[in-house]
Design a protein around this nucleic acid. Structure first.
Lengths: 207, 207
DNA sequence: TTATTTCATTGAACACTGTTTAATTATAAA
DNA sequence: TTTATAATTAAACAGTGTTCAATGAAATAA
């Protein structure tokens, strides 16, 4: 009966560590995270970390994955727009951009393989990748629908999806790096980007 | 008379350090660069670094700027195509992509403010930014010409230039991160990206 | 309750990082 | 040869991630 309590206690300490790490990352960034900072914050010895995690990687990975899933989840609730798939796509990307800009640390870590700790993107994205490819699949089906309806120019669906994705990705990173852009300019950039891209993939008579 | 020799000797040692650093970066990345690695390679004591450079930053900055200039230079020699500005733009970007992929470490460091050492993007890009905006200007004038000729849809020139730039940037980073993409797939991505983008900015009757 | 086993926690060390200071060596000028 | 100047270094400091043997406490068995 104390086996449970023991496990619960374990989980509790584990979460305490993660919470502290989350706070530190929020304040000092992933780079600013250190084992001793964590253990100072929670009044433990540095060695304790290795009783609850394999290494520092595992902590960062856990939090980064958490952050990335939050970003991907933002797309999930986009409602289908049967007749105008481009609006559906646009809505999804708009949310995606907003979510990414809200957790820039985590987005960067995943997309850019950024932080020193997380060297093995593969392991980090075991789950993330499947969710991403799922999202990519959604995007593909929207494009396919657009093509079938004659709204979009016939094209290699997956390639087109990747282009949309990549361009959006570039925009996000740009917005992240250049921190001194006005909210207004950000919106104009996003808007114009979509204009060009959709203008590029949509049939002439639909524009 | 030995004043020269002395200065020459200084420059020599400085270059020795930079050469060693360059090698290490090429092998282990900017993250893998350390003062002791450098000094071991050139059989000096770690402290010597601080006689020739202010700190590690200065070394990284020097090399990053060097690498970035090489990348920007790749665009310089693109010949104007009076009647088909889109081809001119495409050629410039194609070279830019190739150059960036040849020095990925440096490109990342400059564009993503990536490496732990270089924290002050401002200082690093003092020159970089002016060169970049010069390049951006070239891009703008090409677009303007396209608009004037009726080949491109009337638009906010600078905004459009930024979109092209940003999208290309996203593509480059994607290609960098996902190392296991075939040369063929890379070309298809680049090709399709341009197709979509130009299709998006060019006038209907020109496509 | 006592003895034993199991688990959580830590102190201390190791190897690495960038950096600084005082001391040392080598080289030039007097 | 002596003096002054510049180049070079040894040693230390504070920080990093990580390991391991020793300690503490709590759960189980006697």
């Amino acid at each position: 009966m104390s086996k449970e309590r023991q496990l619960r206690k374990q989980e509790e300490v584990r979460n305490t560590i993660l919470d502290a790490a989350r706070d530190i990352i929020a304040k000092d960034g992933i780079r600013g995270l250190s084992i001793r900072k964590i253990t100072n914050a929670i009044d433990y010895s540095p060695a304790i970390i290795y009783h609850y995690f394999k290494d520092k990687n595992e902590i960062v990975e856990t939090l980064v994955r958490e952050g990335y899933e939050r970003i991907l989840a933002s797309i999930g609730s986009v409602k289908r727009n049967e007749n105008e798939p481009e609006k559906e796509i646009r809505e999804a990307f708009t949310r995606y951009i907003a979510a990414a800009l809200e957790s820039p640390e985590y987005y960067r870590a995943v997309m850019l393989n950024d932080d020193p700790a997380v060297l093995k993107r593969t392991r980090l994205l075991e789950k993330g990748i499947s969710e991403r490819s799922q999202t990519l699949q959604m995007l593909c089906s929207s494009i396919q629908r657009g093509v079938n309806q004659g709204r979009f120019t016939p094209c290699d669906i997956e390639l087109t999806a990747q282009i949309l994705w990549t361009s959006t990705f570039g925009l996000i990173i740009k917005l992240m790096v250049e921190k001194d852009i006005s909210r207004d300019q950000v919106n104009r950039l996003i808007d114009h980007q979509f204009t060009v891209l959709f203008n590029g993939i949509m049939s002439r008579n639909e524009v």
